[in-house]
């Protein structure tokens, strides 16, 4: 057991205690938390910096507002309902179409309007927020996912998670929805995490739960060696989020839209550690390398170039010069 401990330490793996104590507590100031914990606020903040996000359709703040939900929705056929303070992907309802009086969810199941309203009231009541605080329901446009991913995903929208430390991209992965995850891109709901080489944007290998996988369980497609489109822009957007929300240790979730390109879905002040398993790499050694930099670059492009040089694992030419 002690030997296990030492090998993990040598591999530079970041544990939960170290993440919380040495990085989150130290570099994420509490007063900036609302900027990422409140998704409505976060969206506004990112839009001010001209960072692309899915458009907001409306916000339902009260039970009375819930009864006027029809007005907010208008004739939108596809949209996503999210708790503004949700965590871990809980309480997200994806509607992809309307059929007569029914809505169609991401699994193709029919949902009654009353069900939808009940869901919204649950969200407002605080069922999905941390500590059961009253919340607001946010309705935003549905992302039409890029066909580039179609072979690697089962329904839903795959997303890309980039860990950004002091503005430097440190590690990245993409999360592919599966049948088990009901189209949600969340690892503990059953999505697969696939590591991405920072320099080239090529996928390196995947993990389902804690077990390594090399093919998508629903499509049978090989998930290694896939080149993520718009990689350069993804890194740039992720890196710029540091200036937007002033959090030193940040998880940026990005989706690829067919028409709009990369969109920032949400930011996370306490990003999970599974990204290390997906990449088969420890985070700590990379974070330490950044700690050792004498002067941190102010400019996102320079930071990315440094990260690609330092953390690229496949030895290909970095896309960003």
């Amino acid at each position: 057991m002690l030997r296990n401990y030492r090998t993990l330490k040598k591999a530079g793996v970041l544990g939960l205690n170290a993440r919380n104590g040495n990085y989150i507590l130290q570099y994420n100031k509490r007063r900036f938390y609302p900027l990422v914990d409140d998704k409505v606020l976060c969206k506004r903040c990112l839009q001010e910096r001209n960072l692309a996000v899915p458009d907001l359709i409306g916000v339902i703040r009260s039970m009375r507002g819930a009864s006027h939900m029809e007005d907010v929705l208008g004739d939108q056929r596809e949209f996503v309902i999210k708790p503004a303070h949700g965590s871990g992907g809980d309480g997200i309802q994806v509607i992809t179409d309307r059929k007569a009086d029914y809505f169609v969810d991401s699994d193709g199941k029919l949902v009654e309007f009353a069900d939808l309203k009940h869901h919204v009231t649950n969200v407002i009541g605080g069922m999905y927020s941390l500590g059961g605080q009253p919340d607001v329901a946010m309705i935003e446009t549905l992302v039409h996912f890029d066909q580039a991913f179609s072979a690697l995903t089962y329904h839903g929208v795959p997303d890309i998670r980039v860990i950004v430390y002091m503005g430097y991209p440190v590690m990245a992965m993409t999360r592919l929805p599966t049948r088990r995850s009901h189209g949600k891109a969340n690892l503990h709901q059953g999505a697969i995490g696939v590591g991405i080489d920072l320099a080239s944007g090529l996928t390196v290998g995947g993990v389902s739960g804690n077990a390594p996988v090399s093919v998508h369980p629903d499509t049978g497609e090989n998930i290694q060696g896939f080149r993520i489109p718009h990689w350069e822009r993804i890194l740039l957007m992720a890196s710029q989020c540091y200036e937007a929300v002033s959090l030193g240790y940040l998880g940026v979730d990005i989706v690829l839209d067919r028409d709009l390109g990369p969109l920032i879905l949400e930011l996370n002040a306490r990003p999970g550690l599974n990204i290390q398993i997906a990449n088969r790499q420890g985070l700590k050694c990379r974070l330490k390398q950044i700690d050792q930099l004498e002067n941190k670059e102010a400019d996102a492009e320079t930071r990315i170039a440094w990260s690609c040089r330092a953390f690229g694992t496949l030895g290909e030419e970095p896309v960003a010069s």
Binding site: L8, G15, N17, A18, R280
Partner: peptide
């Protein structure tokens, strides 16, 4: 409160990483 080492369950959770790097 200042223990920032690994948790016991993390030893098996992350064991794949150390296999790779060992």
């Amino acid at each position: 409160g200042r223990y920032t080492g690994f948790r016991l369950t993390e030893l098996s959770r992350f064991s794949k990483i150390s296999d790779q790097n060992a």
